[in-house]
């Protein structure tokens, strides 16, 4: 359902060319839960941005559900993001002036879903993340963990094919991080495909499939090959997973 072939991303300044990704190949099947790790600056976030169509890529082919992403216009990419992808950000990215209900409503409005259906989905998602009673609260009235659960509810409300999570636990303490991870696992069990970028080795190991980005290229491992991954990382001169 997601396929990247020889994807490259070059950032060009006046004098310097930086290859953030090169010859990046990845296939993701329906229902997978993938943890993406790699050292800082290795291209994890660039990969996530391209997977989520948040920025264009320089070369290669990217197919998402049989749609060739490279040929889409800005509006078509926005619509496709809205319909197929749910985002979970490290900093939660809730809109501070909107209450929880209205925050979850944002992507649903962009899709043009009718008010009654929006209400049904928002309540269902708030219920799922355990915050049904706080729909009228503003984000700043919640703890970090609760805010991230709202962000997850927002991502889920559009019933996306993919959940892209960028360091979803990066701003949380370990207890809250675990709760968020459990929620993601539950969502994955229910059928959603999740790609999660993380620094946290413990969380990464809980994902059935681990991939590592090193110097803009992909190393693909299953959970059971983490040792080998560490060795490759060691060759690249960087710790694979920060403890």
């Amino acid at each position: 359902m997601l396929s990247m072939k020889n994807i490259s991303k070059v950032y060009q300044t006046e004098k310097v060319q930086t290859h953030a990704l090169r010859d990046f190949n990845l296939n993701v099947d329906e229902g997978e839960f993938i943890a993406v790790t790699g050292p800082s600056g290795s291209g994890k976030t660039t990969f996530l941005n391209i997977a989520g169509m948040l920025e264009p890529f320089t070369g290669g082919d990217f197919m998402l559900d049989d749609v060739n992403v490279g040929t889409l216009s800005d509006n078509q990419r926005a619509d496709l993001r809205n319909q197929k992808i749910g985002f979970i950000f490290q900093g939660f990215n809730l809109i501070p002036d909107l209450n929880l209900y209205e925050n979850i409503e944002v992507p649903l409005r962009y899709r043009g879903i009718k008010s009654a259906e929006r209400k049904r989905r928002i309540e269902e998602c708030l219920e799922k993340v355990g915050l049904a009673s706080r729909a009228k609260h503003l984000p700043q009235q919640l703890s970090g963990g609760q805010q991230q659960r709202v962000a997850i509810a927002r991502a889920l409300a559009g019933k996306p094919r993919f959940l892209l999570a960028d360091e979803p636990t990066g701003n949380l303490d370990s207890l809250m991080a675990r709760q968020v991870m459990e929620l993601l696992e539950e969502i994955n069990r229910e059928g959603s495909t999740i790609i999660m970028v993380t620094h946290d080795s413990e969380l990464a190991r809980r994902a059935p499939r681990n991939i590592q980005v090193v110097d803009g290229q992909l190393a693909d491992f299953t959970l059971y090959q983490n040792k080998a991954m560490d060795e490759i990382a060691a060759k690249a001169g960087q710790p694979a997973i920060e403890a």
Partner: peptide, 16 residues
């Protein structure tokens, strides 16, 4: 800025 980027990520077209 961040909020606008987030809205775009969540599917807002430029016109929105």
């Amino acid at each position: 800025t961040k909020q606008i980027g987030t809205r775009r990520a969540l599917g807002a077209r430029k016109s929105a």
